[in-house]
């Protein structure tokens, strides 16, 4: 008797409240039917063995699936996971760097700060990965349980049943036109780096002097106040670069439209750069003096050199980027 009640309890405690009693009653009567008139414990065991594991039996009574994410949602779940991970990584890296730069007082040496960022960055990424994984999985597990449809076909990324027409939305991507995730990631990272340098130029860009153990930042190269006059234009460039990178990530291959957008962006960025670099006050006078002493040339020549190298370097890299974009878009 004892065993039977324990068995029934083991089954029903896994079931929703409202059907427990009915199933307990039915099970009790069924087990009694199966037992001989004067039964021993051995008989009870034999009967319970026939009914099988209480977990399996309870699961049979329940409609809910015994898996977290079934075949219907698995594919789209994995696709989303792969898409969200890199984006989340980039965003958290950028925010981390920005956060550090804002809190950076200029007192600490740069190298320890960088090491600190790397250390905390690894921890942050780990934390972020767990968050993304948890929430996405939780959402999908919930969807799996809310979906009452009997349909078992896997869903496509558009959340509809697959039809041959879906193939039309997937473009065949030749290797040489493909935009790799690595490329997009690199571009975003580059944006983050130069943006940080721009906003914290007076603490990062300039002359470093080693005094024994550590590097010390002595002379800023640029005049931060003058630099920040252009912040609206710079923010527009940053925003456009991020937008273009994400668009590239979604498209996955070079198209004429992307090449044109890239050209516009490069032209705009070049104009902004020229505006800044041609401002006569942008270079810190201490820095010019420092270079004058270093190379034994006049202040005018120092300025001319810096501006020339800057402009030529910027225009050449912009031109290469524009040309490369069209070249990749053309290939077929």
């Amino acid at each position: 008797m004892e065993l039977i009640e324990i068995y029934i309890q083991e089954v029903t405690r896994r079931l929703p409240e409202k059907i427990r009693e009915d199933i307990a009653l039915e099970l009790r009567s069924t087990i009694a039917d199966m037992l001989p008139d004067n039964y021993q414990e051995a008989d009870v065991k034999k009967v319970l063995e026939k009914l099988g594991s209480p977990v399996a039996l309870a699961n049979g009574y329940r409609d809910r699936p015994m898996h977290l994410i079934g075949p219907r949602y698995y594919d789209i779940y994995v696709t989303l996971l792969k898409m969200i991970f890199p984006i989340a990584i980039i965003v958290s890296l950028i925010s981390l760097i920005a956060e550090y730069m804002i809190g950076y007082s200029g007192e600490k040496a740069v190298l320890p700060v960088v090491l600190d960022i790397i250390g905390i960055g690894i921890w942050r990424l780990f934390e972020m990965a767990i968050q993304v994984f948890f929430w996405l999985t939780a959402v999908f597990a919930l969807i799996e349980r809310m979906d009452n449809g009997k349909e078992q076909q896997p869903l496509t990324a558009s959340l509809k049943k697959w039809t041959p027409d879906d193939l039309k939305h997937i473009s065949y991507i030749p290797k040489n036109k493909a935009i790799t995730k690595f490329e997009v990631f690199g571009a975003l990272l580059w944006t983050a780096i130069w943006a940080t340098l721009y906003f914290y130029a007076n603490q990062l860009v300039g002359v470093y002097e080693g005094n024994g153990e550590r590097l010390e930042f002595v002379i800023p190269a640029l005049n931060q106040e003058v630099l920040l006059h252009y912040w609206i234009l710079v923010v527009i460039v940053i925003g456009s670069e991020i937008a273009l990178s994400l668009y590239k990530l979604i498209k996955g291959q070079w198209t004429n439209r992307i090449a044109i957008a890239n050209t516009l962006l490069q032209v705009f960025a070049t104009i902004v750069f020229l505006l800044i670099v041609l401002n006569p006050n942008v270079i810190n006078s201490d820095f010019i003096t420092y270079l004058m002493d270093l190379f034994h040339i006049t202040a005018g020549k120092v300025k001319a050199w810096i501006v020339c190298i800057g402009i030529i370097g910027f225009i050449v890299s912009a031109a290469i980027s524009v040309y490369d974009g069209f070249r990749k878009a053309k290939k077929s």
């Binding site: 039915e26 099970l27 026939k50 009914l51 099988g52 594991s53 039996l57 049979g60 009574y61």
Partner: peptide, 11 residues
């Protein structure tokens, strides 16, 4: 018939 499948099936 596996009884652990039959009773849930009836339900």
């Amino acid at each position: 018939i596996d009884q652990s499948t039959l009773y849930p099936l009836l339900r």
